[in-house]
Simulated scan of single mutants.
Amino acid sequence: MSDDDYVYDEESGEWVARSTLASSAAAVDVRDAVGNPLADGDSVTLIKDLKVKGTNQTLKRGTVIKSIRLTGDAQEIDCRYEGIKGLVLRAEFVRKR
């Protein structure tokens, strides 16, 4: 393994193998607003207008977010959208496509 294969786990305060962290993130059951299970790579649609903190943008209801990533938290998903870096959405505001 190289140094790139380890990440810092803030909860435990230790460096752990990326594969170990990925398997623990996959163990969390993340569900959208209507109860559908979400997985890495899914596309979701916003069910509510959301103001984005740190910008003057508002993501409108019906906006499609492609290729989400699970964070290991049952209520948060990591995603990308045009012009917004590090966007994290709450699972309660999205619906699986």
Rank of each mutant, 00 (worst) to 15 (best):
L38M: 11
S19V: 08
I68G: 04
G72E: 13
K48S: 09
D9K: 00
S24F: 11
D73C: 00
D29H: 07
K51N: 13
E11S: 14
Y8A: 01
S2H: 08
D32I: 00
G35A: 12
K96A: 06
E14K: 11
K51V: 11
R90L: 13
L38F: 13
R61Y: 08
R90Q: 12
Y8Q: 05
V30C: 03
V7D: 09
T58W: 02
A27Y: 07
A39Y: 01
R80W: 06
I77V: 14
S2G: 14
R90T: 09
E76F: 12
K53N: 10
D5R: 07
K85E: 15
V30M: 11
D3T: 10
N36Y: 04
A39I: 00
S24R: 15
T63W: 07
E14D: 10
D32S: 02
E76M: 14
A26N: 12
V16A: 12
D32K: 01
R18L: 13
V16M: 12
D40Y: 07
D49I: 12
W15H: 01
S24E: 14
S12E: 13
L21C: 00
E76W: 10
A17G: 05
Y6T: 05
V28R: 01
G86L: 03
I84R: 11
L50K: 09
I68R: 01
D78Q: 15
D78R: 14
L46Q: 04
D3I: 10
C79D: 06
R97C: 05
K60C: 03
V34H: 14
V94L: 00
E82V: 08
R31D: 04
E11C: 04
T63F: 08
I47M: 04
E82C: 09
W15M: 01
K51R: 14
F93N: 15
D73F: 09
L70I: 02
R97E: 15
